[in-house]
Amino acid sequence: MTEFYSNGKLLLTGEYAILDGANGLAIPTKFGQYLSVKNATTGQINWQSLTDKNIPWFTVDLSLKDFSLLATSDVQFAERLISILRETKALNPSFLDACNGVYVDTKLTFPKDWGLGSSSTLINNISQWAQVDPYKLLEATFGGSGYDIACAQNDTPIVYHKIGGNPKVEKVNFDPVFKNRLFFIYLNKKQNSRDAIKAYRQLNIDKNELITQINGLTTQLIAAKDLGKFETVINRHEHLLSKTLKVETIKNQLFPDYQGCIKSLGAWGGDFILATGTMDDMQYFRQKGYDTILPYSSMVL
């Protein structure tokens, strides 16, 4: 049996603008996804996907010859997987040529609705298995900036951006001394990144100016030596994106009376937010029904 693993991701700065080349501060998470492959003689790909509780949430049997669908628990997801495997084969025509069948198990180490990268970790794992470029496979399937692939492959915080369509990854020293005052809170719904990207693409804005401002904020956030400076930067970032997207900040929408600062992470409106405060302050969110709250050190690799 061969096993692969990829880290999950969170984007602290640069959401949306990272699609156009802005610098984004991204952090790999302690959560991720495994993919294991075992040879078989079935002439098929027998695929099973497990939740973090080891419960199968998706199964599919595919023809090894042409990836045609034989049986599945979820046709829509099966079609997505078939598309990924066909794009993988296009990138490496010899992929799976030498075997007579495979059993494939994937296993998330986080609930799949958390939005920590169930798709990007899958793409990176398949790329390792097939020995193809994960950025090219991502571009051919889900699209996006590729920062999530960079997180899948790195074990430290990174600054990510694309230059002429090519990914550039810089490892950075980002380990705030005030991290005990930083918390990640799940908004109880998964955001569709593809829809968010499509909406952003349709905006008529000066993207060069946006990139310049985001780059400055990313640099300032990394350099922040105390919580006050950190909060100033994330507030500026929130207001800049709010003005750009013409969408109220998540704090104004849901938590206007919270005393600390709040920042959206990734596509606005779902998944996780970052909140500053104390452990006692987190009771504010619990009282509103947001019970999934992770301290910074419990989330960040």
Rank of each mutant, 00 (worst) to 15 (best):
Q153G: 02
D133H: 13
Q128D: 05
Q128Y: 01
A130K: 01
L137C: 09
Q128W: 00
A130S: 14
Q153W: 06
I158Y: 11
G146P: 03
P157Q: 06
D148V: 13
S145Q: 01
A150L: 09
E139P: 00
Q131C: 11
A130R: 02
E139S: 14
T141H: 01
F142I: 08
P134F: 11
L137T: 12
G143Q: 04
L138N: 13
A140Q: 11
A152H: 03
P157M: 03
D133I: 10
A152C: 15
G143S: 02
A140S: 15
A140C: 03
T156G: 00
T141W: 00
I158G: 05
Q128T: 01
H161N: 15
F142S: 07
I158D: 03
L137A: 06
P134L: 12
F142P: 00
W129M: 07
Q128S: 05
I158W: 09
W129H: 06
Y147S: 13
L138I: 03
Y160S: 05
A140M: 08
I163M: 12
S145L: 02
F142R: 10
S127K: 11
T156K: 10
L138E: 11
I163P: 07
P134R: 12
A152P: 00
W129S: 02
P157Y: 08
Y160G: 04
I126D: 10
I149H: 09
A152N: 06
D155P: 04
F142Q: 13
Y135W: 12
I126G: 05
P134C: 11
Q128K: 15
G144E: 00
G165Q: 02
Y160F: 15
N154V: 08
G146Y: 01
L138Q: 14
V159R: 06
G165M: 01
I126H: 07
P134T: 13
A152I: 03
N154K: 13
S145I: 03
P157L: 02
I158M: 05
T141Y: 00
G143Y: 01
D155F: 07
A150W: 03
Q128E: 06
P134A: 14
Y147M: 09
A140K: 15
T141I: 01
N154M: 05
D133V: 07
Q153E: 15
G164I: 01
A150F: 06
Q153Y: 07
P157H: 03
Q153S: 14
F142W: 01
A150I: 11
G165P: 09
